[in-house]
Design a protein around this nucleic acid. Structure first.
Lengths: 174, 174
DNA sequence: CAATGCATGTAAAATGTTACATGATTCT
DNA sequence: AGAATCATGTAACATTTTACATGCATTG
């Protein structure tokens, strides 16, 4: 799975510009996949060259013009191909946990600060996804709701574990 | 945080060869950070050129010789520098969740298969980390135990959420 | 008037993955 | 005999990040 596959998926429903793709890539997708403009625009150019998408310039008033891309049948076939490829393992990368792993080289105050920040981040993310679920979940296919549920539960579970660890480490609440 | 920072951290305790570093990078570190030989060896070469580590050839009998690297004071300073840099956000990347997000383009049987596989993976990871905790947790600094706890809880929570989703989608247990 | 949003792109650098290449020893 | 473990590395490729570059319109 790479940027191309995700963009193909987004264009399946409706044609989009690079800028709009970046917006769709925000929550909840950004919870488990991310891409910057520096990835999106070159990927779109590559996909157009491969014949997976076609560009159409849309003139707008009061705003800059935009280049809207739509899927071709080759693009749709390519997305099918992705869907039939083996599922890659999830990857989780955490600077925070690396620091905890090497915790013996930092002092307890620093560790406590890092944990506190991480609790806030997890709580914020869980709340954000929760709000999103309340707003949008009706009418969503169950598979999409699952993404939100995983996001909410993972963040809540992380915050909970961290709160317990904080108490063990410092003797007080975070 | 990158491969260099993690290698610096590993060499803090004792000198290691590239091969040994790869082994140390297994569970539980691999749960939140990964690196292949194709990353490790070039990184070690770069670090040696920068003066962060020094190489020593160790002759072994019954096995190939190895190049063991130890930290210099510059290397220790560089690790301190990493520890004082801002904590990067965790990143989680999931092919599985991307497929769920685009679930409307797959049939329910396929979705169920993917979920079942993902449950197994999460359960296996949780069990592995649990065993590891039982074996090694005594004597571990609390910060290191936290890494194990997060790994266990995150995987358990994921498996739980997926089991519920599976039931909702298929009407039966996974 | 400054900041933010809308909009598209490029270029350099860093980073990392995968496969290849080699070779001894030990275990089954 | 074949597989696994120990051991080091390179080369090609893929991917991504970061910063730069531009410019109009709207909002505060």
């Amino acid at each position: 799975m790479n940027s191309q596959d995700v963009i193909l998926g987004l264009l399946h429903r409706a044609p989009l510009s690079g800028y709009e793709i970046k917006q769709k890539l925000e929550m909840p997708l950004s919870f488990f996949f991310d891409a910057s403009f520096g990835t999106i625009y070159p990927t779109l150019a590559k996909m157009e060259a491969l014949g997976y998408i076609v560009k159409e310039s849309v003139v707008q008033e009061g705003r800059p013009n935009k280049n809207v891309f739509s899927l071709t049948s080759e693009g749709r076939a390519q997305f099918e191909h992705y869907l039939h490829s083996p599922v890659e393992n999830d990857s989780y990368r955490s600077d925070f946990l690396v620091r905890m792993f090497f915790g013996e080289y930092s002092d307890d105050e620093t560790l406590a600060d890092w944990i506190r920040d991480e609790i806030r981040k997890a709580e914020t993310a869980a709340a954000q996804l929760d709000r999103m679920k309340a707003d949008w979940a009706q009418g969503m296919p169950a598979s999409k709701t699952l993404c939100l549920d995983i996001g909410i539960d993972l963040n809540a579970s992380k915050a909970q574990t961290l709160r317990e660890a904080f108490k063990r480490l410092t003797g007080s609440d975070a």
